[in-house]
Amino acid sequence: MSNFPISPKLLSLPLLIAALSLSACSKKAPQGLPPAPGDNMDYNQAPSGPIKGSQEDFLANVAADRIFFETDRSNVDSEDQEIMRSQAAWLVANPSARIRIEGHCDERGTREYNLALGERRANAAKNYLSTLGVQLSRISVVSYGKERPDALGSDEQSWAKNRRAVTVTVR
């Protein structure tokens, strides 16, 4: 034992420190009032509808995001031109948007042949969009050949769905 007596004030010091620490963490009153009961705005809710320039906005405002091709072909036919015109109109209205056109093929043919054909299809769509006033610098292309089928199956219906070029917005 020590020769110095401990004062009661010294014993209460840890309790005082603990109480001050806890009071510093107490909740503070809100700065503003909540909206009035008749106010229909939900300030915590995200804006409704797709964000301008997004893939969702693109899909909501174009005829389709894809065009289809005949076997071993890469030409943009009259039906595809209508779809491409709607895509070009959206791109003109969204000048900061960039896109990637993905070329696809059906399962028939070699991997190398289908990669080359998928690239020709994507480039055909890209070139058609450029004739409609879309800057080439806003468009990239990629070929997936037969590696990413949309429809599984070894029949004409499945093959027709897989011979396509798909437009995707990129950020």
Rank of each mutant, 00 (worst) to 15 (best):
N123F: 06
E107C: 08
Y113I: 09
S48V: 12
D77M: 07
P5Q: 14
T169L: 15
G32T: 13
A63W: 04
N75G: 15
Q55R: 12
R85T: 05
G145L: 03
V141P: 02
P50H: 10
P34L: 09
R164S: 07
I101C: 09
S2V: 08
S137L: 07
L91S: 05
K52S: 12
V142R: 15
Q87W: 04
I6F: 04
K161W: 09
R111S: 12
L20D: 00
I83T: 10
S130C: 14
L16R: 03
R138P: 01
I139T: 10
P34Q: 04
F69H: 04
I6M: 07
T169W: 11
T110C: 02
E70A: 15
G153Q: 03
R148A: 11
N162T: 05
Q31L: 14
V62T: 12
H104L: 09
K9M: 03
K52R: 11
A124S: 11
R148N: 13
N3S: 14
C105M: 09
Q31V: 12
P30E: 06
N127E: 11
S12E: 05
I51N: 09
P50M: 08
L15G: 03
A125I: 06
Q45R: 14
P95W: 00
L136S: 15
S54H: 02
N61I: 02
A29L: 13
S26C: 02
N40Y: 07
W90S: 01
I67H: 07
L33T: 14
V141L: 05
S54F: 01
R111M: 08
G53F: 06
V92E: 10
S7C: 02
N114E: 04
F58S: 08
A88S: 03
T169P: 05
A165R: 03
M1D: 14
P47K: 08
L59E: 15
Q81F: 00
I67S: 07
I139Q: 03
R108L: 06
G133V: 10
N94S: 03
M41C: 14
N61E: 11
A19M: 02
A93L: 04
D80K: 10
V166M: 11
E156I: 11
E82L: 13
Y144R: 13
N123G: 09
R138A: 05
Q45Y: 06
K52H: 05
R121M: 07
I51G: 03
V166S: 10
K126I: 04
G145Y: 02
R85L: 04
E156H: 10
W90I: 04
N127M: 06
N94W: 09
C25Q: 12
V141R: 00
D80N: 15
D42R: 00
L59N: 15
Q45E: 12
V141C: 06
S54N: 01
Q55N: 14
D72Y: 09
Q87P: 08
R73Y: 13
L115G: 03
E156K: 07
E70Q: 14
A97Y: 02
I6T: 13
E147M: 12
L115V: 03
Q45F: 04
T131H: 10
G153E: 08
S74H: 15
I17R: 07
M41A: 15
K9I: 01
P47Q: 01
R108M: 05
L59Y: 13
P34D: 00
I67T: 07
L22S: 03
P35T: 07
P50Y: 01
C105S: 04
P34I: 01
